[in-house]
């Protein structure tokens, strides 16, 4: 699915990712944890093709394609989805129209005709029910005036609509109360399949109680320094990151 090989990226003069390696197989759920400033969100941005970051080394293979050679739109249309940590508001553009443009962009990429109105609305209804996104939120401007929880649910709704092959969830749990967290996690879990992989970036073990990962990686100072099963998340929760940092530096 995804193979990251010695990825280096910087913003301005500071190098954030310093040779990161990671391989994600089909159907796998990987969690990335790490202290603030370790490069978690940078990794998500670089994978999605944000141009603020300069990639200074390494390779990323996504489904046999050179991901770093593709622009952000092409990456998305090829099946890479990023659930944003801070979903963006677009005033005056209805959520529905936004999704239709997105879906039809992907369909065009696949050589398909734009989706018919009725089929689209049925799809919206079906996918919105996964995250309990009611009609009011569907028709409002994209994320405008949404609460933190509503924004995150909207991200998962969009993910469900676009049915990506790889979904990167960037701190999707931040700012969520326990009920919203459960709704979001249920939405994600309902989409797990042998063909779809997830990269879940989080600070806290809590989310991983709901979205159970196959692998947990610890990112420190731009590199993955430890990999384990879901029990590693529990250990981090208990002991913090310092012991790993010390183990790395010594």
């Amino acid at each position: 699915m995804l193979t990251i090989n010695k990825l280096k990226a910087s913003i301005g003069d500071s190098e954030i990712l310093k040779g990161l390696d990671l391989t994600i197989g089909p159907g796998e759920v990987h969690a990335i944890m790490g202290p603030n400033g370790s490069g978690k969100s940078t990794l998500a941005s670089v994978l999605a093709g944000r141009e603020d970051y300069a990639v200074t080394g390494g390779k990323v293979d996504f489904l046999g394609m050179e991901l770093l050679e593709m622009d952000a739109t092409a990456r998305a249309r090829s099946g890479l989805f990023l659930a944003f940590q801070y979903p963006v508001e677009i005033p005056g553009v209805s959520n529905i129209n936004f999704m239709r443009a997105a879906l039809n962009g992907k369909r065009a990429h696949e050589g398909l005709e734009p989706i018919a109105g009725k089929a689209f609305l049925e799809l919206v209804k079906e996918k919105a029910s996964l995250v309990e996104l009611d009609g009011r939120l569907r028709n409002r401007s994209v994320n405008e005036g949404f609460s933190g929880g509503e924004k995150k649910r909207n991200e998962i709704f969009q993910m469900a609509m676009l049915e990506p092959k790889l979904a990167v969830l960037d701190e999707t749990d931040s700012g969520l109360d326990i009920d919203a967290l459960r709704i979001v996690a249920n939405g994600v879990n309902s989409m797990r399949s042998p063909e779809r992989s997830f990269l879940v970036i989080t600070h806290y073990q809590r989310l991983l109680d709901y979205i159970v990962p196959d692998f947990v990686h610890v990112l420190v100072d731009g590199r993955i320094v430890r990999t384990g099963g879901k029990e590693l998340a529990l250990e981090l929760e208990e002991r913090g990151y310092d012991w790993i940092k010390e183990a790395v530096t010594s």
């Binding site: 952000a72 998305a76 944003f84 677009i90 936004f98 997105a102």
Partner: peptide, 9 residues
């Protein structure tokens, strides 16, 4: 960027 990431050119 949000639009691009959703596959909109």
């Amino acid at each position: 960027f949000y639009c691009l990431q959703r596959g909109i050119d």
